[in-house]
Nucleic acid binder design. Structure first.
Length: 189
DNA sequence: CGGTGGATTCTCT
DNA sequence: GAGAATCCACCGA
């Protein structure tokens, strides 16, 4: 599902402002046997949405100041989700710039894209087939694009599991030292 | 450009 | 009380 979601669009309508972006980078968190998955240690108040039915938004707060947005993908009871790590901005660029307080680096990072689209904890558990936060499929047929795979970013446990997926030609991927940290783990299907 | 450390709050042990 | 699926300002080259 993490690979499949590349090319889909995330559309938000927050405070009457429409913003959207195309998914270019994702990470998979694959359930109770995945040590890096929030659901690995069982159901808690924080991660309960992960255990719900697929199609919900799992939004969690991290590092004292950031929100991150996941798409719940597992069956009810299975804590599986896809973290949306980067978008290509499409609509509402001015609103994104205003929310982010800068004109670059609007959506290249999981917390950055949440800030740009106005996503916060009030949307945790929201079904993604309706406003104010909607997941839309790509235009059919989707243009073929090379997909890169690497280890996941910013975690300690199971860091080398090849569960990060990205459109290699995108100029909107998450930046920083992480991207170059493990070039040998990047492969082309 | 790369490296470093601070911000800041919530959750669970 | 530790640590977290992060970001940003700042530093030096």
């Amino acid at each position: 599902m993490a690979r499949e979601l590349l090319g889909w669009r995330v559309v938000s309508r927050i405070q009457g402002i429409r913003t959207s972006g195309r998914i270019v980078e994702t990470e998979a968190y694959i359930g109770a046997h995945d040590p890096a998955c929030h659901g690995a240690a069982g159901r808690t108040r924080r991660n309960r949405t992960m255990f719900g039915p697929p199609g919900l938004a799992y939004v969690y707060f991290i590092y004292g100041m950031h929100w991150c947005f996941n798409v719940v993908t597992g069956r009810e009871g299975d804590p599986e989700a896809v973290l949306i790590r980067a978008l290509e901005p499409l609509e509402g660029l001015d609103a994104m710039e205003h929310r982010r307080g800068r004109r670059r680096d609007l959506t290249n990072g999981p917390a950055r894209l949440c800030q740009a689209l106005g996503i916060d904890g009030t949307l945790d558990g929201h079904p993604l087939d309706r406003a104010p936060l909607v997941l839309e499929p790509p235009d059919s047929p989707p243009a073929p694009a090379p997909v890169g795979v690497s280890g996941r970013i910013g975690i300690r446990k199971a860091r080398d599991w090849p569960l990060r997926f990205f459109l290699t030609t995108s100029s909107h991927l998450s930046s920083g030292p992480h991207l170059e940290a493990a070039p040998e783990s990047v492969m082309r299907p």
